[in-house]
């Protein structure tokens, strides 16, 4: 019985994946940001941001530290709500649904995005329960189904083989890189459309970073990825679309090729020279 359900789910996901592939061809926009402004007290952190994020691509938010990249990322899933001093105005549309409209059900909305932060923050539960937490928040209660999904998500991030014998031990026993992948699996468990990655490799060693980067290349088939980074080389390796920010403004944006081979503004030129 349960196996049938599981098979059905798998089939429908294959169908879904096929749909996504078809959509890729059309170069669709998944997220549209209009006139986004963020103030912290008197400071103007984000100034009139207008952006379109292409679906199933890796969009890199590039720029020096403190230019507002992280704030932009946090506005996307309304984590800015947690900081009472922040005032956000404007519109962010995900499939014609305004994220910033006050009536939104933030729980449902946040599940459309998976957040991967600078450092892994596993919950104080076992490895298994960390992933199961996400699945349960999605409303799934069937134990078999949860079990199946935990394995699936851990496989998706290439962690299953490494942890299958110690699913019930604490995530603290994992390396930082593994923990970061665990957090990614937990984020994927709520079936997001978009992965928000905030300098996800900044605390990792080069090998772990490489694994995450390769994962992203794989995951963009199914998800849209918005990656914040200030590592220029990483941006060059991963980006399909690049948004260059400075002092809270979008200075320049375009395809990876345009931006890196033919920068228009002096600020970006300077940044590219410094970075290389």
């Amino acid at each position: 019985m349960t196996l049938d359900i599981i098979k059905n789910i798998e089939n429908s996901e294959i169908l879904l994946t096929n749909c996504i592939f078809e959509e890729v061809e059309k170069n669709e926009t998944i997220l549209k940001i209009e006139n986004l402004n963020v103030y912290a007290k008197k400071e103007h952190i984000l100034k009139n941001i207008n952006l379109e994020i292409p679906k199933n691509k890796i969009t890199v938010l590039l720029g020096p530290s403190g230019c507002g990249k992280t704030t932009l990322l946090k506005s996307l899933n309304r984590l800015t709500d947690l900081y009472k001093e922040l005032k956000v105005s404007g519109h962010i549309f995900i499939e014609n649904d305004d994220i910033l409209a006050s009536k939104q059900n933030t729980s449902v909305l946040r599940q459309k995005m998976g957040l991967l932060s600078q450092r892994p923050y596993p919950l104080p539960y076992s490895i298994y329960k960390n992933v199961a937490y996400g699945i349960k928040l999605k409303g799934i209660k069937n134990k078999k189904l949860i079990e199946f999904n935990v394995e699936k998500k851990l496989r998706e991030v290439g962690l299953w083989e490494e942890v299958k014998d110690r699913l019930h031990s604490s995530p603290e026993s994992l390396s930082i890189g593994q923990q970061q992948r665990l957090c990614l699996a937990r984020g994927l468990a709520v079936k997001p459309r978009i992965i928000l990655a905030d300098e996800p490799t900044s605390a990792l060693d080069p090998v772990s970073s490489k694994i995450i980067e390769n994962l992203f290349k794989e995951l963009k088939k199914h998800y849209t990825i918005i990656l914040v980074t200030h590592v220029l080389r990483q941006a060059q390796r991963l980006a399909d679309h690049v948004v260059f920010m400075n002092y809270g403004e979008v200075i320049e944006q375009g395809s990876s090729k345009e931006i890196f081979s033919n920068p228009q503004t002096s600020q970006l030129k300077e940044y590219l020279i410094e970075g290389n």
Binding site: V108, L115, Q118, Y121, L137, A189
Partner: peptide, 18 residues
């Protein structure tokens, strides 16, 4: 308790109390 941990939980769609 690090802010990042709370953010991680919120970003999964958990409510404030959860």
């Amino acid at each position: 308790v690090p802010q990042g941990l709370k953010e991680a939980s919120f970003s999964l769609g958990a409510t404030a109390w959860e």
